[in-house]
Design a protein around this nucleic acid. Structure first.
Lengths: 116, 116
DNA sequence: AAGTTAATTAACCAATGAGTTAAATATAAG
DNA sequence: CTTATATTTAACTCATTGGTTAATTAACTT
């Protein structure tokens, strides 16, 4: 089944272990063992999570000797933020006020009241 | 398995059909049949998607005669936006500039250079 | 009362996801 | 060359997901 990008990103983020890994990587690069340490699960399990994260483009992995340092890649998160923007008006009160404000300065600054 | 709120939300959003339903509901309330119309799938399938959305708190359903009008609820989306904010600095260039700016006016406005 | 429309529930199936243990690979160090 | 460390792959299990069709419930219409 052809999984679109956004669906892949959301599915990847739908796991607390993976979100915890991202939170850790927000601090800085880390190896697989370092990332696995906090979790009560086997190393292969974490390795799988990393593969999922990598496949979603949320991390990249280098190689230094026998270590594969992982680092955060925020591209997909930016896409999510973009998607969310379409809905901001449903929860953000200041969003409406900002829209009002923009409309106001738009008409005030343009005596003809053109829309654009 | 105890599914945390955020995981439930992400899992729910990880399906293009469900995101399309939300997009439709952003325009206004709609019944199950109306929501199902655009999709090449059975009504029960859509009904299931709606149950998932409802369970995630992304929609609520009223009842008018034999119709169950659905409407968007943005609470969980706001939570996602909140979570995302922790990562904004990784993709938003202006975020750093804003941080710099805030730091600047903070020190400029306070001759003693106190941090808070 | 009978029929029509709206929606859900039941029973089923195939595919996926998240975990396991055991084995394999890769690199470094004695 | 052997061993230790870091990580991945293989093979398997179990639960969940997303879809199906057929049957059921609910409410309106005639």
């Amino acid at each position: 089944m052809p999984m679109d990008h956004l669906s892949t990103t959301f599915a990847t983020l739908a796991d607390p272990t993976r979100r915890a890994i991202l939170a850790r990587l927000a601090v800085g690069e880390a190896t697989v063992n370092e990332l696995a340490a906090p979790f009560a699960m086997s190393l292969p399990a974490v390795s799988k999570h990393l593969k999922v994260l990598e496949h979603a483009g949320l991390i990249t992995r280098g190689r230094e000797a026998q270590w594969r340092p992982c680092r955060l890649e925020a591209g997909p998160l930016k896409e999510v933020a973009g998607w969310l923007e379409h809905y901001r008006r449903f929860w953000d009160d200041s969003f409406d006020r900002m829209a009002d404000y923009l409309k106001e300065i738009q008409t005030k600054g343009d005596p003809d009241g053109r829309k654009n």
